[in-house]
Design a protein around this nucleic acid. Structure first.
Lengths: 359, 359
DNA sequence: CCGTAGAATGAAACCGGTTACATTTAATAA
DNA sequence: TTATTAAATGTAACCGGTTTCATTCTACGG
């Protein structure tokens, strides 16, 4: 169809005043006497440019300090090259190790990280996810506490073709990938180690556990191992508080208060173990002479505690890397199918456990 | 001027297939029988819509789970509502406290945080800044090591009207704001505290200092205080290694190796102090009975060390908050002029220092 | 019942890039 | 030298919003 139109072209001589405001690709094109397409090609397909054209444009860019606007390009390419990272808190060694690893790996692969901490609040978690969807992140790494509600939200993100990976916990979903250790097994092993060292009376100290999050799994691993060895584990030998050092302090005191004859405390995180160590010392109990202590996470400090802490190593750095790789793989292959990656745990034997069966 | 044009309008019935791909504002407009302008107004100026129009659009949005694209809107509004955070490492309690504070404050004010760690590399630092400029962050918070080169880069950002705030260090620039404590004075005070407790032979343990970064200031504060009290401080009583716990371990060993008769070690970070504590114990020196120890930062762990650590409090959370507020203030008032904010430090007296002059 | 102010809405240009397609230029073969 | 083909570049639509300005409704006073 051919129409007759009256042109209303305003013809503002686009950006004639170079002085203020950002320089656009059109300015660069004009200044170097080429079209915007050619300038764009300099960035994305430089090999198809004649060397002198390239040099000419590069000179202009250099001279005028042109900085392309990634938001604008994301609009057409539909790729923000941004990974959203959701994490409960930064103020925890194990989390910060993961964050750092995620960031470093993303940087290597050319992705940026936009991150937010939930402070363990479900509402904040939801808000964060909304923000990330608004910003059209290319993918989401979630290292918070996994609950059904959030899984549903991540699935919603998948509907918008934003893939996601959950870290720390191993879920079983066929869209949302996960990277973690076998928390049940690791906890079982740690408990068995104490038993193998001749301990019979022990208590467990852990953070808040919900239905089948990793803490629940650690709790279950402890209980099952105790039961399988015909040892007692019940609500009175398991204390669940929060994640902070002071919870370890308080928890250990509570445990010892209830069961003065415990020979070992197993703390399901090094932070709690650190608090327990302090608490035990306050109560005049020497570790490991009077009472033994096992942690979980193997944060940097645990090596330099006095005594150095026997703990379960969680390969946080490796997990971060794996998570990013899995995410990017999903992105690049446009894959929906989830992968569930289990990493190896390992008991790091140091000086905080007395071995009653040592030769 | 009136022209006759032959229309080449392609007329692709924009987004006729609602099925795949993201829903756009045009889809919502079409589905609710209004123009895109009206939909846009629903988000930015809802009061000027007739109630039933509003309800109609809202229903469509709700039904189709429309998620506006923030990158697209940033293109016209020129506001990404994003703060860039540059930090050397996440794996350090004092840094993670700051990060968390920055994030929480940003979230409160509606800003997102895009962050990157430099791992103390100048090159990474430069790359990060480039990325943030590319993404048109609304402002930059820089908590890395301040060197002239980077200041120049931040000034470049200011030219592109991206304001910035430096944290930890107090610089004197009239474009780049800063938030920090008086490191020289804090260090002087810590040293004086030891002297007031009767100590005369002490060594300093610190990370890598460069021209007038905060570590250099802490070093200077220590030296000046010693000199003013007619006590010796020289290169052989000052050990500068890196930031990690193991550097504290090694550093303390080196200090004691050179000067077996030191009665106190002042570590310019709690992390180093933590390592020193371990090291001293290894060498059979009891703290504070045989040798005293002072840290710097007041990270959470320092309260629960054995013995708990006397240290200088750095208000990291407050600093993060102040930094964000200052940044947002600059943004909102389009202010160029820098502000330099000094926060109070404080010596937290715990159990790691022996007071030879106690009554 | 009409004129008019003010409220509500629509049309279309624009933000700063990308890219399919068309066109020009250069290189190679005949 | 010319035809053919490939390489280099240009044109203009498009991404998904916002916003100015014009237009249509609505309500109210005369």
């Amino acid at each position: 169809m051919i129409l007759l139109l009256v042109s209303k072209k305003v013809n503002t001589i686009h950006n004639s005043t170079e002085q203020q405001g950002q320089l656009t690709i059109r300015d660069i094109a004009r200044l170097s006497g080429v079209s915007t397409a050619t300038v764009s090609r300099l960035f994305h397909n430089p090999s198809c440019l004649k060397p002198d054209t390239k040099a000419k444009i590069e000179a202009v860019i250099e001279k005028h300090q042109y900085i392309p606007n990634l938001n604008a390009s994301a609009l057409t390419t539909k790729n923000t090259m941004t990974v959203g990272l959701i994490i409960p808190t930064v103020k925890s060694s194990i989390h910060s190790a993961l964050i750092q690893s995620v960031q470093d790996t993303c940087a290597e692969l050319g992705y940026s990280v936009i991150m937010g901490n939930t402070n363990y609040s479900e509402e904040t978690e939801k808000n964060l996810l909304d923000i990330m969807l608004n910003r059209r992140v290319t993918g989401i790494i979630h290292a918070g506490t996994v609950n059904p509600k959030f899984i549903a939200m991540l699935r919603r993100a998948a509907e918008h073709s934003i893939p996601s990976v959950v870290v720390w916990e191993n879920i079983s979903d066929n869209e949302i990938s996960s990277v973690g250790i076998d928390n049940y097994r690791a906890s079982y092993d740690a408990t068995q180690y104490l038993i193998d060292c001749g301990h019979k009376d022990m208590g467990l100290l852990l953070g808040p556990y919900t239905t089948m999050n990793r803490l629940a799994q650690r709790r279950l691993g402890f209980m099952d191992c105790m039961n399988h060895n015909n040892l007692y584990a019940g609500d009175d030998t398991i204390i669940s508080l929060s994640h902070e050092v002071r919870d370890g302090v308080m928890g250990a005191a509570m445990l010892i208060g209830k069961h003065p004859r415990l020979t070992a405390i197993y703390a399901a995180s090094d932070v709690l173990a650190f608090g327990a160590l302090y608490s035990l010392r306050q109560m005049g109990r020497r570790v490991p002479k009077d009472i033994s202590l096992v942690g979980f996470d193997n944060i940097e400090f645990s090596e330099y505690c006095i005594p150095s802490l026997t703990t379960v190593n969680v390969p946080a750095v490796k997990m971060g890397k794996k998570a990013v790789f899995e995410l990017v793989d999903k992105i690049q292959h446009n894959r929906l199918q989830a992968k569930h990656i289990y990493l190896e745990h390992e008991i790091i034997i140091r000086d905080s456990v007395a071995n009653y069966r040592a030769t």
